[in-house]
Structure formats: C-alpha cells, structure tokens
C-alpha cells in the first residue's frame, strides 16, 4: 500500500464529515454532529457478549427450523407448518427460485452472520491474533446485515395468522416463540456491535 493510513481522524460514512478522533468511554457514543450517525459506541465486554448471543441465536434457529410455528384446523382437517415448510412452500413448479431466496433470507443469512461473528470475535476474546481472513469475514458480516430478515418473517407469521383466522382455527406453535426470542437476541446483538471497535481491535491484534 503506497499510501499510509491517516490516523487520529474519523470520517462519517454517511456524510463524509471529518473529525479528530476521541475514543469515547464505555457506554458513551460518538455521534456525527451533522447527520447524527453513530460513529463509535463501545460497550464493556462487548465481544464476549456478542459471542454468547451468537451461540444462543444459532441454537434457536436450528431448533425453530423443524418445530411447528403455526397450527391450523378446519372441518376435521389439521395441519401444522415449520419454518422449513414455509421455505419449501414454493419448491414445486416455476417458483422454486423463491424457495431458495426465502430460505436464504430467513435461515441461511442469519445463520451465516452468527458463524462469521464467531470466526471474527472468537480468537480475539481468547486473546489471540485474528483468524486468517477475519477482515474479509467481518466485511461480509456487515454487507449481509440488510439481507437478514428473520424479524420480518416473525411479523409475517402475525399477518398470516390474521388472514387465516377467517378460514380456519389457528394456534401458535413453540417455534413461533423461539423466533420471537431470536428477534430480541438479534436486536440486542446489533445494539452491542460497534463496527469501529471491531476494526480497531482487528488492526491492533494482527
């Protein structure tokens, strides 16, 4: 790299405002005065907490995958559906690409993001140098953020419930509650995650 990094500055990614960098204390936040984007928000023991939440998350996703989240009955007929069934809803016929997309958005991408956090933060929590390709892994983690849609799926269950209630009796299954907890865990984790701190740690330890 022929150019050297300009240390001591921080630039707002949304509006390009340039600031002299002051690292805030734990619990404090550095905010762009122009567009209000949070630039730095360090949390105490953030990495180990994020890791714990990732493991919780993975367990919840895998468990919720095959358990029923909605059950329905009408005129003696009965049916229940798991997340896997919803993913495979489009699997026969020309709409199968949609099955792939739904599976990716509600299962694969969220799971992959959790695995990426384990890969990036795991060695650092253990006090070791970052794993090979950790920078690339974290970049991918960030890029995948808008494509992780588990929480939208959970709200979709609610809408489906209302729509079907005219047609048949519906009950919520155990997986619905698991997915609900999962949404909270993801929110908590996003709140913990300070991108600046992770990049800083990756740079210092490599």
């Amino acid at each position: 790299m022929p150019h050297s990094q300009q240390s001591g500055y921080i630039v707002c990614p949304h509006c390009d405002a340039l600031y002299v960098q002051h690292t805030p204390e734990f619990g404090e936040r550095a905010v762009c005065t122009r567009c209000r984007t949070v630039l730095i928000a360090p949390r105490k023991n953030a990495f180990i907490r994020i890791l714990a939440l990732s493991v919780t998350n993975l367990i919840l996703v895998i468990a919720a995958l095959f358990l029923p989240f909605l059950q329905i009955s009408r005129a003696g007929f009965h049916n229940e559906t798991s997340v896997m069934d919803a993913v495979l809803a489009f699997s026969d016929g020309p709409l199968f690409v949609l099955s792939l997309a739904v599976g990716a958005l509600i299962v694969l991408v969220p799971m992959m993001r959790m695995i990426l956090t384990l890969y990036v933060l795991g060695p650092m929590v253990a006090g070791r140098a970052p794993a090979r390709g950790a920078a690339k892994a974290f970049r991918l983690f960030e890029a995948l953020k808008p494509w992780s849609m588990a929480e939208i799926f959970v709200l979709g269950c609610g809408v489906a419930l209302v729509k079907v209630s005219a047609l048949a009796q519906v009950h919520l299954g155990s997986a619905f509650w698991m997915m609900g907890v999962l949404v909270l865990v993801v929110l908590l984790q996003d709140n913990m995650m300070c991108r600046w701190s992770v990049w800083n740690a990756l740079e210092k330890r490599s």
Partner: peptide
C-alpha cells in the same frame, strides 16, 4: 404468501 401456502 410462503407461510399461507405451507400452512393452508
């Protein structure tokens, strides 16, 4: 749509 198609 995915949920309804799987459920109903």
């Amino acid at each position: 749509v995915a949920i309804l198609s799987a459920l109903v």
